[in-house]
Simulated assay, not measured.
Amino acid sequence: MPELVAPTVRLHAAWLAARDEWGPGLHEDGFGVGLSDDVHSPAGFAAWVTRLTDQADPTKPPESGRVRCTYRWIVEDDRVLGGIALRHELNDRLRQLGHIGYGVRPSARQRGLATWALGRMLVEARALGLERVLIVCEADNVASARTIERHGGELEGVQETELGPARRYWVRLQCLA
């Protein structure tokens, strides 16, 4: 049974295995990896996990240029299957990316994990007081579009972004408990 867990150093090896399956690059949506993050060394990984945890803490100001964000990893049997991030607000750059970003490692896809994780994060977004959230996916990512639509996503349109054409969906949260 999968669960959503806060980032933890306990899963360092499992997280690296997930990243290795994706291949090189920073494309793992939902993980919050930056260009300067050292996720390979234990100390670097611990510093990165601390940054992710601090980003959600309302008692700590976000780093310059960042917004408050809650990160969760999709984990089953100590295996990291994916990640999902809930940005508590949008700045100019994040209006292209949306409130929520997620990714599921290739070997764990087509199990409904993204749909399940998105449902959980929408409940968290509602608990934060958000009335609606913007979710963006690549224009040709049919699986992600279906995931968003299953949760009531209303297509605003397709827009060119720094990453290419993207579908923009709004999900209203008033019905969530």
Rank of each mutant, 00 (worst) to 15 (best):
E3I: 11
D37L: 07
L155V: 09
Q96D: 11
E131C: 11
E28H: 14
V104A: 02
H40R: 14
D38Y: 13
G30S: 03
R10E: 15
W15P: 04
A46D: 06
V9C: 14
D29P: 13
P7R: 01
L81C: 14
V133K: 02
A114Q: 01
L26C: 09
T161C: 00
H88P: 01
H151E: 03
H27S: 15
I74D: 11
R126Q: 14
A6R: 13
L11F: 15
A46G: 01
R167L: 12
Q55C: 10
L113K: 04
V133L: 08
V5D: 06
P24Q: 13
R167Q: 13
I135Y: 00
M1E: 14
E160C: 00
T8W: 07
L4T: 03
V75T: 08
R79N: 15
F31H: 13
I74Q: 13
W15Y: 15
T115N: 12
H151A: 06
V67A: 00
R150Q: 13
Q55V: 05
S144L: 02
H99C: 02
A6G: 11
T147L: 08
R79P: 11
Y71I: 05
L16W: 06
A85W: 01
G152W: 05
D92I: 13
T161W: 00
R168S: 08
E138T: 10
Q159L: 13
E154G: 01
Y71W: 14
R72S: 04
R87H: 00
G152E: 08
L118R: 03
L11G: 09
G30P: 07
G65I: 00
E3M: 14
G23Q: 08
L173A: 12
E124N: 03
E160V: 09
A117I: 00
W116A: 10
E63A: 13
R66Q: 11
D37S: 03
S41G: 12
R10V: 13
G83R: 07
R105V: 15
C137G: 06
R68V: 00
G82V: 02
A143M: 05
A108M: 09
N141D: 15
D57M: 02
R146T: 01
W15S: 15
S144A: 12
M1K: 12
L16H: 12
L128N: 03
G129T: 10
A127S: 09
E28Q: 15
